[in-house]
């Protein structure tokens, strides 16, 4: 099949960037979107041009590396599918695909379709864990956890941190991402002792990063390749409101968002 790819090319963060149109005449419907880009890149390299930089790793829809907008939809038209598993049979012969990177102030551009998602790591670092050092654990069956509870935690824990929620949100909010971790750990008895502190810490960092606010419209969950439910955002709100009410001190600290990559000293 034949496809026209209009791809965002940008050399670096400070470069202006522009769309470049590529025509592909021989797309196999069985290939994935990323394999399609591989094929394009091979031809670009052979022509002496720079290939399109895009992020990818496992190509099984679980590592969360890949992701870009296709015709205005995060990860493209198939629900619950990352671009690495999106096969070309979902497009029509002759179709034009507009491919552009996630756009958000909190995800600074790096090159072409690659963006910087370290804000997510900082949000997790601010409380997205159970503070239990290795060796402290009791037997795995000490806490009996009902199957429903465990399944609900797993639904939230399925997040792959790809950033599609932020990309799809008109406000570039990371509420779904943050809510997913707060819900996963808050639902389980192991996460209860830290529930308040976790909510305050993670929400504080979320708000320190230049993400927008949640307006409860649900674009995020529609774009989410793991279909994380909107419910997790309300869990975050509930935990945060309760924790803010109960708190006795202001000991939560946030870290400054870093957008630089260079180390200052050179060997």
């Amino acid at each position: 099949m034949k496809l026209t790819l209009k791809i965002w090319r940008q050399k670096s963060r400070n470069d202006k960037g522009q769309f470049v149109t590529y025509t592909m005449n021989d797309v196999n419907p069985e290939m994935s979107m990323l394999e399609c880009l591989d094929v394009l890149n091979e031809t670009l390299i052979e022509k002496g041009e720079e290939p399109v930089a895009f992020e990818h790793d496992c190509r099984e829809g679980i590592c969360g590396s890949c992701g870009f907008m296709i015709n205005g939809v995060a990860h493209g038209p198939e629900r619950a599918t990352t671009v690495c598993q999106l096969t070309m049979r979902h497009f029509k012969d002759g179709q034009e695909l507009v491919i552009e990177p996630w756009r958000a102030k909190a995800f600074p551009q790096i090159k072409d379709l690659v963006v910087d998602r370290r804000a997510f790591d900082r949000i997790i670092a601010s409380g997205g864990y159970v503070s239990i050092s290795t060796g402290n654990a009791t037997d795995g069956n000490t806490h009996l956890i009902g199957k429903d509870t465990s399944d609900r935690a797993m639904d939230a824990a399925a997040c792959i941190g790809c950033g599609a929620c932020v990309a799809a949100c008109p406000n570039a909010s990371a509420a779904l991402f943050t809510g997913a971790k707060i819900a996963h750990l808050g639902i389980l008895p192991q996460g209860k002792p830290e529930q308040d502190r976790r909510a305050r810490g993670m929400v504080a960092q979320l708000n320190t990063e230049p993400f927008g606010s949640c307006t409860n419209i649900g674009e995020c969950t529609g774009a989410c390749p793991k279909e994380i439910p909107l419910e997790v955002i309300s869990v975050m709100n509930r935990d945060y409101i309760r924790a803010s009410w109960k708190k006795r001190d202001d000991d939560v600290r946030t870290v400054r968002p870093v957008t630089d990559w260079s180390l200052s000293s050179k060997p």
């Binding site: 159970v130 060796g135 402290n136 009791t138 795995g140 465990s150 996963h184 192991q190």
Partner: peptide, 22 residues
């Protein structure tokens, strides 16, 4: 044996029986 205990304590949502056991 300790690995399972550690991971459960970290909040890894391993599959469970209806009664709550792993």
């Amino acid at each position: 044996v300790s690995i399972i205990d550690q991971c459960v304590a970290q909040g890894v949502p391993f599959a469970r029986e209806y009664g709550g056991a792993l």
